[in-house]
């Protein structure tokens, strides 16, 4: 199923430009993401972090009046030329900033993606739902009430439900977009533990507004500012005393941004 290319890069982005109408928000950025690493993406609001993720799984297509140029390849394939865009999106799990429990039962929330993909056998679905909820550290809390509505869960539970849903289509890449802004620190730490577990078999892109979160989790960290990459290096370097760009140090130390 995975056509492993010679390169160990899982995702390659080359000269990516994105504009909404006449306003360009990403100005030709290039970088690689290695297989099974956690890439932290930090940067202030409006720096193009979310837009970048939306280009990756092509949900940018749903926003009218956008123009994308450059290439993004996943496993050596250009995502903008992909014909089965639904399969592409299933390959990439996406967790949005605000938890979104769909107005379906907890079970149906997790089973939604496999069902959309045509998996309908009850036994397999049951197994899949349990596995995903366990991976998202939610199973013990909800196993007795899988029929109740996903929207009635607490914020932190809904966010883990969202993660379970993102895992349900067995993605190879997991993107988390500021997943912790709506949940408390304790739950955040639980989810961070989950992520450490998951990195063994998937590539994770962690967009975060908490620089310390990137420091705790990421192997490499990218500082994105106003649609340009200020610096991309191992997390140790970025958070050290001597990053190459002084803006990086200022940002991670909270001096600006």
């Amino acid at each position: 199923m995975v056509n492993v290319t010679a390169s160990e890069n899982h995702i390659e982005v080359r000269e990516l430009r994105l504009s909404y109408g006449v306003k360009e928000v990403i100005h030709g950025i290039s970088f690689d993401i290695r297989r099974n690493e956690i890439l932290g993406v930090i940067g202030p609001a409006q720096s193009g972090k979310t837009s970048l993720l939306r280009c990756l799984n092509r949900t940018i297509d749903f926003t009218p009046d956008t123009h994308v140029s450059g290439t993004i390849t996943v496993d050596g394939e250009d995502v903008r030329r992909v014909r089965n865009v639904y399969a592409l999106r299933r390959k990439i799990g996406m967790v949005a900033p605000l938890p979104v429990g769909l107005p379906l039962s907890i079970y149906d929330n997790v089973a939604f993606a496999p069902r959309s993909a045509g998996l309908n056998r009850k036994g397999e679905l049951d197994l899949m739902v349990e596995q995903c909820l366990r991976q998202a550290a939610l199973w013990d809390e909800v196993k007795d009430r899988l029929d109740s509505l996903g929207t009635k869960l607490s914020g932190g539970q809904q966010q883990r439900l969202t993660i379970a849903r993102a895992l349900s289509h067995q993605p190879e890449i997991l993107c988390l977009d500021e997943f912790s802004i709506a949940i408390d620190p304790v739950t955040t730490m639980r989810i961070e533990d989950v992520l450490k577990e998951l990195r063994r078999h998937m590539t994770i892109i962690l967009v975060t507004n908490l620089t310390q979160q990137a420091r705790r989790l990421a192997d490499r960290t990218m500082f994105l500012w106003k649609g340009e990459i200020v610096e991309l290096d191992t997390t140790n370097v970025i958070f050290s005393d001597k990053p190459r760009d002084s803006r990086t140090r200022d940002y991670v130390e909270g001096i600006f941004g």
Binding site: E77, V79, Y86, A117
Partner: peptide, 13 residues
């Protein structure tokens, strides 16, 4: 792009 999970229909219904 290959199809995602097993049993997934390649084209659309």
């Amino acid at each position: 792009m290959q199809c995602g999970p097993p049993n997934a229909p390649c084209g659309r219904w």
